[in-house]
């Protein structure tokens, strides 16, 4: 299969890559761009570990083709912190012990940020339904919910 050149923006920087027409955006990010923060937990869009945003929309990058990123803006976990400062969600996850093994953490942080960008003050129920597409097997979700709530509070008062 012939590869296709793709021009895109990743975490604010212009990026170009070539990929096969059937190659997923997740594989492109991990194998061609060296961005291994997005994880493959299932490859079928069930676990959310590969969550990124594509033009601001939360997607499972295992269900998006690399070629679909042409002209799009992609945001991954690697772009969440700016300079030497953590994003409030990242700091809250550390402060509230919202991660254990950490494999789901990048996806959950990307998903949580996508929610707070749209809805700065979600109820616990809204939060739980929004994150229902992100599986975590270690924490039972409790501390994740507390951490996102704490970050949302902080972001609203900032």
């Amino acid at each position: 299969m012939k590869t296709v050149p793709v021009s895109t923006t990743i975490n604010g920087d212009a990026a170009e890559f070539i990929c096969a027409p059937d190659e997923t955006l997740l594989d492109v990010l991990r194998n061609r761009m060296g961005l291994t923060g997005a994880k493959e937990g299932c490859g079928t869009g069930d676990c959310g570990a590969c969550s990124v945003t594509l033009d601001g929309r939360l997607v499972c990058s295992c269900l998006v083709l690399g070629v679909e990123a042409e002209g799009a803006e992609i945001a991954t976990i690697e772009g969440l912190a700016t300079g030497d400062g953590l994003h409030p969600l990242q700091q809250a996850f550390i402060d509230h012990a919202a991660l254990q093994c950490g494999i789901c953490t990048p996806g959950i942080l990307v998903a949580a940020k996508a929610l707070l960008d749209k809805n700065p003050d979600p109820s616990e129920t809204e939060l739980r339904y929004w994150l229902a597409g992100n599986l975590c097997r270690c924490t039972g979700y409790d501390k994740i919910i507390r951490a996102v709530q704490a970050a949302a509070r902080q972001m609203r008062s900032a």
Partner: peptide, 14 residues
Amino acid sequence: GIDKVTGRALYGAD
């Protein structure tokens, strides 16, 4: 913590 919230932590497939 920091490695895990920034995507820097290296897992089996990384």
